[in-house]
Simulated scan of single mutants.
Amino acid sequence: MDLLEEYRRANFFFESGDPLGASRLLEPIIEAEPHNSAVRQLLARAYFNSAQLNAAETHLRALVDHDPSDHYAHHVLGRTLERAGRFREALPHLRLAAAMKQQPDYQEAVRRVETWLGKSAAE
């Protein structure tokens, strides 16, 4: 198997709106290249976009463990936890990502989760 060609195909599937197809192509690649962060990140995003949140979380935690300064991995991990309704777990990752990189969508995610937690605490 040509891993680079399969990765390119998976990226095409992902960009074309087929995260399930992308994840099927990426799973054997990550088995062959378990330390490849680019493959792991795309696989995590494919899982996130196809609502396979537990699988996404597993790969995102591996990325964060490998490189704690990866703001994007923290952001997507926070978004994954948010999407799973685990707001208290999501907030530290979202805040860390927003502190590391000034991105409007990072700031918006922090505000959204803080707002939800504020409403939740008031109820």
Results as ranks from 00 to 15, higher is better:
residue 2 D to T: 15
residue 2 D to N: 15
residue 5 E to N: 14
residue 6 E to T: 10
residue 8 R to E: 13
residue 10 A to R: 08
residue 11 N to V: 08
residue 13 F to I: 07
residue 13 F to R: 12
residue 13 F to Y: 15
residue 15 E to N: 10
residue 15 E to C: 11
residue 15 E to Q: 14
residue 16 S to Q: 13
residue 18 D to W: 14
residue 19 P to F: 02
residue 21 G to Q: 13
residue 25 L to C: 10
residue 26 L to W: 05
residue 27 E to D: 09
residue 28 P to Q: 04
residue 29 I to P: 08
residue 29 I to E: 06
residue 30 I to V: 12
residue 30 I to H: 03
residue 33 E to F: 10
residue 34 P to V: 00
residue 35 H to M: 08
residue 37 S to N: 08
residue 38 A to I: 11
residue 39 V to T: 07
residue 40 R to T: 05
residue 43 L to D: 01
residue 46 A to H: 04
residue 46 A to G: 08
residue 48 F to V: 01
residue 52 Q to P: 00
residue 55 A to H: 00
residue 56 A to H: 10
residue 57 E to G: 00
residue 58 T to Q: 01
residue 58 T to M: 00
residue 58 T to C: 01
residue 59 H to T: 02
residue 59 H to S: 00
residue 62 A to K: 08
residue 64 V to Q: 01
residue 64 V to E: 01
residue 66 H to P: 01
residue 66 H to V: 06
residue 69 S to T: 12
residue 69 S to A: 15
residue 70 D to F: 02
residue 70 D to T: 05
residue 70 D to H: 06
residue 72 Y to L: 12
residue 74 H to G: 01
residue 77 L to K: 00
residue 78 G to C: 03
residue 78 G to S: 01
residue 79 R to I: 02
residue 79 R to E: 02
residue 79 R to N: 00
residue 80 T to W: 02
residue 84 A to L: 02
residue 85 G to S: 07
residue 88 R to A: 13
residue 89 E to R: 03
residue 91 L to V: 04
residue 94 L to A: 03
residue 94 L to S: 05
residue 94 L to F: 06
residue 95 R to W: 08
residue 97 A to I: 02
residue 98 A to I: 10
residue 100 M to R: 14
residue 102 Q to K: 15
residue 102 Q to A: 15
residue 103 Q to A: 13
residue 105 D to R: 12
residue 106 Y to W: 11
residue 107 Q to T: 14
residue 110 V to M: 10
residue 111 R to Q: 14
residue 112 R to G: 09
residue 112 R to A: 14
residue 115 T to V: 11
residue 122 A to I: 09
